[in-house]
Amino acid sequence: MNVTLPRTETSIGTTSLVLLALTALTVIAVAVGALSFSYLLYLLALSGMYVMLALGLNVQWGYGGIINFAVVAFWGLGMYVTALSTARTSPLGLDWHPLVALVVAIVLSVVAAIIVGLPAIRLRADYLAIATLGFSEIFRLIMANESDFTAGMAGLAGIPRILEELFLTTTATNLMIITILSVVVYLLLRRIHRSPWGRVMRTIKADEELAESLGKDSFSFKMQAFVIGCVIMTIAGVYYAHFINYVDPTDLQPLQTFYIWVAVILGGSGSNRGAVVGGIVLVAVLEGTRFVTSIGALAAISTGPVRVLTIGLLIILIMRFKPEGIYPPRDELIWPKSMTSTEDGK
């Protein structure tokens, strides 16, 4: 006899219909020429980068309740390690292979995460936020002012593209690369999210004292989550450097960290699916507001305030109607095979 476990009621069906409708509108826009196909590929490739950043932050905040306002610093670490070691305009003149730069970026990310995390993870939530934000600003100022080593505000150009010969366009190649990276990271995180490690992290987030009483070293688990998230952010930065082929300190503004937090909140804290959807919605808002100035009556409006206003409205609406986010993590925490069980070995 099959025994079906009760499932929590969700509104995923309605959400999926809305997302399908938006997808259909995008296809129609491409078909009628309102949106070029090449630009759509660019937006999808850019969305993949934001998805990676959202997944990295979700490991920290969604899994373990770690407030990290240094997202842009670890993203920038990946960008600058790649640019300084591979770009033809690099003051260091290293000319490394991109794969070597990737490995070095990951190693430096782990080292930086440990250095930042050892003192910061022990702090209370508000002090942790201040500490990580301070590290992010220190990193930005170093990149902006140490012109002898980082090229300063002049930026670094001439970053080589990778696997350029696989497709007719480099944008399609970039989309393929970030899609593979995102899928691998998503599947890995889904696996660990449902593992005993993931269950311990959720216990720590809900009640750290309870986890400690059960013999779990909450600091060790938090450090692991912090390092994993930072490495994912750094890989996203490495990809972005090869994608854009130019980096400078203006990319490292704190507002970028705020955008990633918005993506995680919109999608659903603790939900890997939510991080994916949140990253895509974020790019749709950020890039969609660029077209406001093309409307005659709104031509004088700056797109910057419109972006912030739109994102603020999205947060208000989500918090009002779906406080757990677009895709709450409930269903992700259960292995599909456990939804039905059998008796007597049948």
Rank of each mutant, 00 (worst) to 15 (best):
G296D: 13
A144F: 05
R290A: 09
A101Y: 09
G198Y: 00
F321K: 05
D331G: 10
A45T: 06
T169E: 14
R122E: 09
L214T: 05
A206W: 03
A225E: 03
T89C: 00
V30E: 08
L43Q: 13
T132K: 07
R7D: 08
F291N: 06
M49A: 14
L156P: 08
V183E: 12
T342F: 14
A129V: 07
A29C: 11
T179N: 02
F321T: 13
L156I: 15
V59W: 08
I180F: 12
G215T: 02
T8Q: 15
V3N: 01
I244A: 02
F135D: 03
V231I: 01
I301P: 03
I114G: 08
P336K: 11
L123Y: 00
L156W: 11
G345M: 09
R88N: 03
Q256L: 14
S109P: 09
V72C: 02
S302Q: 12
G33A: 07
R88I: 13
W75K: 01
R140A: 10
L163D: 04
I130T: 06
S269E: 15
L43M: 09
G198P: 11
I159R: 12
H97S: 14
I260K: 08
I244V: 15
G279L: 01
D126R: 04
Y259E: 04
L123A: 07
L5K: 06
A87H: 00
L55K: 02
A225W: 00
A211S: 14
G296Y: 02
V184M: 06
L286E: 11
P119W: 07
V103F: 15
Y63K: 04
G278S: 14
G48Q: 04
E287H: 14
M319N: 15
V27H: 00
E146C: 07
I228L: 10
I180L: 12
P254R: 03
F321V: 02
Y39C: 04
T250I: 10
S11L: 14
V238N: 12
V264D: 04
I106Y: 02
S218P: 09
I228K: 10
F167E: 03
I326F: 01
Y80C: 02
G64Q: 08
P196Y: 10
R122V: 08
L333R: 00
H97E: 11
T234E: 03
Q224E: 01
V281A: 13
L187I: 02
D331A: 11
E137I: 15
R140V: 03
A206M: 12
L189M: 14
S85P: 06
T86V: 09
V100R: 01
L19H: 06
V107W: 11
I315N: 01
P254Y: 00
V72I: 11
